[in-house]
Amino acid sequence: MSVRVTLLAAARGSALLGERFDDDRPLDEAGWYAVQFAAPALAPLASAELRYCSPTPRSRATGEALGFRPLVQPALRDCDMGRWRGRTLAEVTALEPAAVDAWLADPRSAPHGGEPLLAFISRIGGWLDTRPACDGAIVAVAEPAVVRAALVYALKAPPATYWNVDVGPLATVTLTGRSRRWSLRLE
């Protein structure tokens, strides 16, 4: 039996240039407004048989504001960025330019002391592959990075593809299939 998983990127918790690695800030005012504006279009997702979210405050708040009442899934947490946690890319690049270059070039590297990109993609793929077969749909609210990792995994794309996928706040993507056999469904 096939599974249908819709991934919904959490609403924003900060301005784009203020985004920080492994950010755990709640929704900002613009994020709340965007959820309210998008709610009518996203309301059908609340009928999913299984509803999940990542443990971040903005993912939980997005799911709750949409009426999903999601179950927190620790496996859907953002990539562990080690000592870079809480910093912006610009801040880290200014302090450790060679480390940032290594991190961007090699998906197995973790100069920040956290989780390598390849391990992050594999963790998210493992979560996808263990979803139970169900007659209904599954929805998961997660950080944009988690949605990107799920797409790379599902499409069996090279890890470097991760850097070429933009996932905006409240974007949705649907994957259908079963363990290790996923298809991207565009509607």
Rank of each mutant, 00 (worst) to 15 (best):
S2Y: 01
S2M: 10
R4G: 11
V5E: 06
T6A: 06
L8V: 11
L8Q: 06
A9Q: 05
A10E: 03
R12D: 08
G13K: 01
L16P: 00
L16V: 11
L16E: 11
G18H: 07
D24C: 05
R25P: 07
P26D: 07
D28N: 01
E29T: 10
A30I: 07
A30W: 02
W32P: 00
W32K: 03
Y33G: 04
Y33C: 07
V35L: 10
Q36M: 03
A38H: 09
A38T: 08
A39C: 09
P40G: 12
L45I: 10
A46Q: 08
S47I: 14
S47N: 13
A48P: 06
A48C: 12
E49I: 13
S54P: 04
S54D: 15
P55A: 13
T56I: 02
P57C: 08
P57L: 13
R60T: 07
A61C: 02
E64H: 00
E64N: 06
E64F: 04
A65L: 02
A65G: 01
L66V: 04
G67P: 00
F68D: 07
V72T: 11
V72E: 12
Q73R: 01
Q73E: 13
A75P: 00
L76W: 03
R77D: 15
C79M: 13
M81Y: 11
M81F: 12
G82R: 04
R87Y: 10
R87G: 03
R87W: 09
T88C: 07
E91Q: 13
T93D: 12
T93P: 00
E96G: 04
A99S: 12
D101T: 12
D101V: 09
A102H: 02
W103V: 14
L104M: 12
P107G: 14
S109Y: 05
A110E: 02
A110V: 06
P111N: 03
P111M: 07
L117P: 03
L118P: 00
I121E: 10
S122K: 08
G125F: 09
G126Y: 07
G126F: 09
G126E: 13
D129C: 03
R131S: 11
P132S: 15
C134S: 04
C134N: 09
D135S: 09
G136C: 12
G136L: 12
A137V: 06
I138Y: 01
V139I: 13
V141Y: 01
A142F: 06
A142S: 04
E143K: 01
E143Q: 08
P144Q: 14
A149F: 08
V152F: 04
V152S: 10
V152R: 04
V152M: 08
Y153P: 02
A154K: 01
A154I: 08
L155D: 12
K156D: 15
P159C: 06
A160I: 13
A160P: 00
A160T: 10
T161F: 06
Y162N: 07
V165D: 09
V165G: 03
V165W: 04
D166K: 00
V167A: 07
G168L: 05
T172E: 11
T174S: 13
L175Y: 09
T176C: 13
T176E: 15
W182S: 06
R185G: 09
